[in-house]
Design a protein around this nucleic acid. Structure first.
Ligand SMILES: [Zn+2]
Ligand SMILES: [Zn+2]
Ligand SMILES: [Zn+2]
Ligand SMILES: [Zn+2]
Lengths: 144, 144
DNA sequence: TAATGAGTGTTATGAAATAACATAATAGGA
DNA sequence: TCCTATTATGTTATTTCATAACACTCATTA
């Protein structure tokens, strides 16, 4: 977890960016959570001493972190999750468990290529790809 | 377009459901649009004589139509598009052009299977899959 | 005819995200 | 060092997206 912050710092430097205080706080909170979080949950905790802050502060931090690949936004339910691969630019699929709400990140280069070529046969040039799944994770399947 | 409504009616009957007036109006407006629409654009047009109606009316209709596969919701930007395959239950990928905003629907059984097995190797049982792309469509590429 | 269930109308509210403008901190260049 | 441009933050207000809750209608059926 502190590794994650250190890696994030290194990544920012390489990109000529800065991991400022609000950005760092948002990333820390997300990294400490075991499930994706809503923006307003972050807003209520990302201020000084864990107090609330204002929406734009958090949304700006989230935009920044998403752009660098340090955080992923789950479009289906507008939640955010820290990336555990420290800033990959390759696309990933995010599978969210309907029971425990934990998110699993899966790389899928081959799938991306298939979709890219499927799009291309229709003349569509893919620039961004979102793949999200819902279902049941292993732990919850065993517990059931 | 009138075909689409007829097919929708048939589909509803088969499912033991009814394509009531508000549902039909919403579907008609979506089918007539060449780009995905926001819910509040529908709200402002889905009433009697093209007048505005209330949010729950439209959201209920959208929920219904999405469940039957007659309409797809694009999660990235909370828009809705009429399906031109009249109620398939198979998953599809939706590619939205960043220039003209038109949506292209692509079936992807093979991709779904790859993702399903990728998920399964991690013990994750996939129940729902969202695949959305962004990029440039053929028309816009040629126009540029 | 009562009771059920599905669907709608309506009011109000909740939740997610951004616009717009002011202020502060930072980094270069003269 | 001082000025200036840039980057980021703080703050207020607003917009956009979605649902809760409750009353009402209408068809089905016991
Ligand atoms: Zn990641
Ligand atoms: Zn689970
Ligand atoms: Zn479809
Ligand atoms: Zn286009």
């Amino acid at each position: 977890m502190h590794d994650l912050i250190r890696e994030a710092e290194a990544l920012c430097q390489r990109a000529g960016m800065t991991l400022t205080a609000p950005r760092r706080r948002v990333l820390e909170i997300l990294a400490a959570s075991d499930t994706p979080m809503k923006a307003y949950d972050l807003i209520s905790k990302a201020g000084e001493d864990g107090r609330a802050t204002k929406p734009p502060t958090v949304y700006r931090a989230l935009d920044f972190l998403c752009q660098l690949g340090l955080v992923h936004r789950i479009e289906q339910d507008a939640t955010f999750v820290a990336c555990n691969h420290a800033g990959h630019t390759q696309p990933v699929a995010l599978f969210v468990c309907n029971s425990c709400l934990k998110a699993t990140e899966v790389a899928y280069d081959d799938v991306a290529q298939m979709l890219e070529s499927a799009a291309l046969t229709r003349g569509f040039q893919l620039q961004r790809l979102v793949i999200e799944g819902r279902g049941q994770c292993q732990d919850c399947a065993l517990a059931a």
